[in-house]
Every structure is written in structure tokens, then in C-alpha cells.
Design a protein around this nucleic acid. Sequence first.
RNA 1: GGGCCUAUAGCUCAGUCGGUAGAGCAACGGACUUUUAAUCCGUGGGUCGACAGUUCGAGCCUGUCUGGGCCCA
Length: 504
Amino acid sequence: MSQEQTPAVPGEDDLPEQLRIRREKRAGLIERGVEPYPVSVLRTASLADIRAKYATLETDSTTGDIQSLTGRVIFKRDTGKLCFATLREGDGTELQAMLSLDKVGQEVLDSWKSDIDLGDIVSVTGEIITSKRGELSILASSYSIAAKSLRPLPNDHKPMSEETRVRMRYVDLIVRDEARSNARLRPAVMRSLRETFHQQNFVEVETPMLQVMHGGAAARPFKSFSNAYDMDLFLRIAPELFLKRCVVGGIERVFEINRNFRNEGADSSHSPEFAMIECYQAYGDWRSIADLTRALVQNAAMAISGSHVVTHHDGRQADLGGKWREISLYDAITEGVGESVTALTPLEDLMKIATKLGMKIDPKWITGKLAEEIFEHVAKDQLIAPTFVMGFPIDTSPLVRAHRELPGVAEKWDLYVDGFELATGYSELIDPVVQRERLIEQATLGAKGDLEAMQVDEDFLRAMEFAMPPTGGMGMGVDRLLMALTGLGIRETILFPLVKPEVE
RNA sequence: GGGCCUAUAGCUCAGUCGGUAGAGCAACGGACUUUUAAUCCGUGGGUCGACAGUUCGAGCCUGUCUGGGCCCA
């Protein structure tokens, strides 16, 4: 006191007024012997319990039921001798607390008015009643502070800016109903997905995220390093090659739901880390795996909205029910450009078509890649209702079996919903000799500077040489599934999406 | 990668022609025993994202950088 003290936190003196006042209130409580962060407080029921128990209580009644309830103070309406506050608990359930002079006395009432701020978490003990206006309430005989908030809550009636919501999701969850429901949507969808898999006798496995060699998809990886082994490691871009090892080993129906990492840009439909489903079904093919995919999506829709018709957050409805439309990729291109295009159409002809469409062409694109780009250019906007796009070019699908009839085409589909790619499914390539040739082609592309090309995974090829049964496989983005079910952007489906650090 | 928009009080946002920084909520002081975003009276709160430039003078104009959003590829 007598000496000059440097503040414990640098710049404590420079805190904004509201933060400083709350820190002073905390210190004041401690000085008076009141613990602002007690080890426990009284709680006999949740607010939801009380709401359920007294759903039909008449206006201005008493119950004689004494409870201790906790919640965060989100509104305060202080009058001279009777104070009201709205308490809110984690799922958004609210209940009114009332403190009256004749029940708690002058000292307690004064302390409530001066010590308790919006955002504080409190425990209130008293009788459950309804007010003269009919509001279900707890009429306090005493209260205690459960945890003092040192920061003011944002304005509860104006939505926080998108940036603030993402940077401070914990506050978003306190103040925004949709944030709370979104957070609970994902686990509901995850449970539904797992149930569908279990109904169909799929076994869930967990395969490595830290990999010696990345593979199973075309993407740039995040690179790490193992000090103990003195070698480079990669965060996985896909679990595919390990799940296929499982199928070789006899786990005939296998799935994994877990995180993949891709060292690429982030936008409204891409996140550097994202949850992905992959599954493999021995003795299945691209057709059987398409049926499974439809069941996964439709059951998830049913789980969260009780119907195959889902309502997006903006009120738009999307019907995911029934059997989905199928179109052939090359038929769609042919229709879109008005001249016949097949997997055998040479690169030069595709170039002419793309140029005529005014597309920007990357000279590194191979024939199949160019065909896919033309498809996206002419047809993507029509893919709002769920649509299987069947038959992708074989030169961009190194892990897929060739189509049983169409030359140059692979037995691969992409599922489009709402204009974006939700899932992809294959008849898997199981001939180890062809598989080796395809991976070596990829490695050649890699040597030429294609950073997304796959590496040759010798152990994977050895596994394939022990024979994998004919198999259908599928991959689906979980975040994108949530987008298709809700219409939200990917950053709203992920609780804590990657954000660059705030600058001081 | 290219283009457009954006950053101002704790939160959400105004800020005209370049001339002393504004509102609502929140906060602080006071009144109020049935409020529901309570009401009424009063008060305080700002490194206008950062740096540079133009100017007598910059929240505003110019440039660079940083964060965020949208569109295109």
C-alpha cells in the first residue's frame, strides 16, 4: 500500500472502465469475506427441471417448493424493493429470479444490486412461484455468487459480428440461441451416422493421423517432424490406404469418422482441418455404396428434423428424401456444351471447348482434370437437389477401378447437394499390379512438380498383393453434411474453426 | 492468385463537404415492491486496426501492412 506497486498484469491501470470496475468488485467481495469463485454452490435442480415440473402453474401462485437454482444472469431489472433477473443455463433454458426486500432484507438486496452484474453466475435459493404477470420464478430467500464475470456480456439483442462469434465462441454460445443449437446438431448427426453404420454391421476403426507417408487423396499435406525417430511425418490427408489394409485383413465392412488435414486455403466451404467419413464394403461396389450413402444422409436428416425435408437456417427447405437423381458426367458435359464429349475426347478438343466457354485453363491440367473442370463450369449450378454424378475420368482417379463398360471412365461418382460436392464413392481398384502402375504415374506427376500428387506407398502395395476382395468405398465430409442439412457456412458448423491470431 | 467491401466506446453501429467524436444497449450515481430489451433523472467512458504521406488541419483523402467478410478463378 505504502510503496509504489507495479500492477500484477501489465497495463492493468489502462483497462477499459467496465473491466476495471468488475475487477474492483471482485476485490471488494474478497475484502468482505465473500468468495467470488466458491468451490461449490447450492443446486437442487436445473432450470429445465423446474420449467418441466411447473409447465402449467397459474398466474400469481405459490408452491411451497423450496429449490436452489443456478444460472447466468443475462438480464437485470432492479427496482427499489423488488428486483428481477433472468437466469439462463447452458442449453438456453431461462428462469426468472425475484429478490424482494421483505424476503431477503436490506443488506442482501443492496448486495445483489451492487455486486451482481450481467454475466455473473449465481445460485438462488427460494420458493418456486409465478409472478403477478404469470412468469415462472424463484422468489429468493438467499442467493450466493457462483462465479463472477470480469467481462461484460455483449448486447444480447444485437447479433455479434461474425468475427467476434468465431473468435469468442464461448460468448456466442452464451448469447446466441442458434450457436447453442448448432453445437448440439453435430453430435446428433454423428450419433445417427454411427447408428446407421452399426445397423449395417460396419466396424469403426481408428487409423493413424500422423503418417510416415501421406496418401489416399490429391492434396497438399501439413508436414511435421519426429525428434525421436529423426524423420519427417505428415498429418493425414485421408485414411483410405489404412482402411483398405483393414479390408485386406478381413474387416469386411469398416468405417472411420475422424479428422483430416489439408494444407490449403480456407473459405466458406473449406477448412484446413475437417471431419471426414470413410467407409469400405467388401463385396460391394459403387452402386451398393451409393445406397449406403443415401441411407446415412437421410437417417441423419431424420435424426435432426424428423423428416427427410430439412429446413435451413434461413427458412429454405431442402428435400433429401426419395431416390436421388443420377446423371453421367460425360452426358452432362455433352448436354452443357452442345457437342458430343466422352472420356476418349482428346485434350486439344477439350481445350477448344474450354476456351469457347471463356474458362481460364491451367496448362498443367491433364485430360480428365480438364473434363472435370468443364463439367463444373457447365453443370454445377444445376446440382442443388441431391444428385449422383456418375463416371469420372480414370486418369484423375488413381485408386478407382475402370468402368466395366465405358473406356477411359472409372466407376466413381460424386454426390452433389446444394451445388457442392458432399461425398464420393468408388468401385475400388483391387488389382495390385494396376494399382502399382497408377501410383507410379502419380509419382511421376509429383516429380514434375504436382504438389498434390500421391506418393508410392510400398507397404500399401504389399497389402494389396495379399489380395483385397472386390470392394466399394465412400468418403464424405462431415462438415459438409452439416452444411447440406442446415445451409450454414463451414465455419458455423465447426465450433472452433481456425482463425488467425488477434494482433495486439 | 485477382477483384470488391470492411475495421470508430465493453457490444452493435452512425459519423454529411477534411474543421473540438455520436447513438442504442452496457457501465457509474440517484428514484422506484410485479418487471419481461423495465422506466425516469443525472454522469463518465475513445491511441477512430497499424505505419507512413498529402494538408494550416485527417475518423474522413492517398499509399503500404495486418485482421475480417463477399465474389471470381
